[in-house]
């Protein structure tokens, strides 16, 4: 009787529940020698947009208490180079790990263009839609802030794509539950919670924000309680829906206990993000600690723990 860490969700088999989050593991190649993502549940790629993006001017990142701020500006190789140069390598090195490609656009049309092209490519297991991207035509408010945009993006991509689609939601909204419901209504197969929170750090000597763009996205252990609360809330909401979808928990996971908080709150899978920058094998360590916890607590199947923190 071995411990069963496998998870079946989104219509896919995952060899374990630990993935690496978008933007914290590149395209899987840089870290591969040190941390082959094939050991993990899956890789979520850096966000892909239609055109190649140079990104924002430096400084782009700065440390904060228990976390970091970033404003990279979605720097990426662009759709065509991703499909031609990056994806074949990823697919060839994935082993049993699932390949999730994170896509974004600055308009609904761009989202649909990128999602459709990636969704039709060989070697992709699922799409994660980055709804934290600003909508250029709607005053740069992010897509995830508005139910109509969420529906248009999700339904628009799914009209052309048969792969499972995960909507990645931002916590920077009044009611994340309503947006989760909109995404599921529009056909999303899963929800990733949460993206970064907006933050700012100011240098008193320079009298200016440290990050060139002023605002940055806050990540790391500082946001974990926010993420756990969002997962808990949305999981409750899912229980009231006719066809609930699985939740992927993200935000400040650096240890097995951190991951278990998300799983107990209702996440079927988790993603390790910023912690990868502190230690390239952070995700493997999280997995090992989850396994050790289950063994010492007599848990036979990791899926038995999903949502257990809710009142029964």
């Amino acid at each position: 009787m071995g411990l069963d860490l496998t998870v079946n969700c989104l219509g896919l088999p995952f060899q374990n529940p630990v993935l690496v989050a978008s933007g914290t593991f590149g395209y899987g190649d840089e870290y591969y020698e040190v941390m082959p993502f094939s050991e993990l549940g899956g890789l979520v790629t850096k966000t892909i947009t239609a055109a190649r993006r140079e990104g924002n001017p430096p400084p782009r990142i700065v440390e904060t208490d228990s976390g970091m701020l970033n404003s990279i500006g979605l720097a990426n190789v662009g759709l065509r180079a991703f499909l031609e140069e990056k994806l074949p390598w990823i697919a060839a090195h994935a082993g049993q790990a699932r390949v999730v490609v994170n896509v974004a656009g600055f308009s609904v049309e761009e989202f649909i263009e990128v999602g459709t092209a990636v969704g039709g490519a060989k070697g992709v297991d699922a799409l994660e839609v980055n709804l934290g991207c600003p909508n250029v035509r709607a005053g740069y408010i992010h897509f995830g802030a508005d139910e109509l945009s969420v529906r248009q993006v999700v339904a628009g991509i799914l009209k052309n794509v048969r792969l499972p689609l995960i909507a990645k939601l931002s916590p920077n909204v009044t009611d994340i539950g309503a947006l989760a419901e909109a995404a599921v209504d529009a056909g999303a197969d899963g929800l990733s919670l949460i993206n970064t929170l907006p933050g700012m750090k100011i240098d008193p000597l320079k009298r200016r924000p440290v990050i060139s763009m002023g605002f940055g996205g806050l990540s790391g252990p500082a946001i974990r309680p926010v993420g756990v609360a969002c997962v808990y809330k949305v999981y409750q909401q899912m229980q009231r829906m006719e066809a609930p979808v699985p939740i992927v928990g993200i935000g400040g996971i650096a240890s097995g206990r951190d991951a278990l908080e998300y799983i107990l709150a209702g996440a079927s899978l988790v993603q390790v993000g910023t912690a990868n920058f502190l230690h390239p094998r952070a995700a493997a360590n999280v997995l090992q600690e989850i396994a050790a916890f289950c063994e010492s607590e007599g848990v036979a199947k990791i899926t038995d723990l999903v949502g257990l923190a809710h009142e029964r």
Binding site: G55, R60, I61, N70, A75, F277, P280
Partner: peptide
């Protein structure tokens, strides 16, 4: 420049470099 990962993943530490003409790459 401020860094997080140290090996090209986070893209946090870019330096503006002129690569022919006026075009600047990070």
């Amino acid at each position: 420049e401020n860094m997080a990962c140290g090996m090209g993943i986070c893209q946090g530490c870019v330096i503006p470099v002129r690569t022919g003409g006026d075009s600047v790459r990070y």
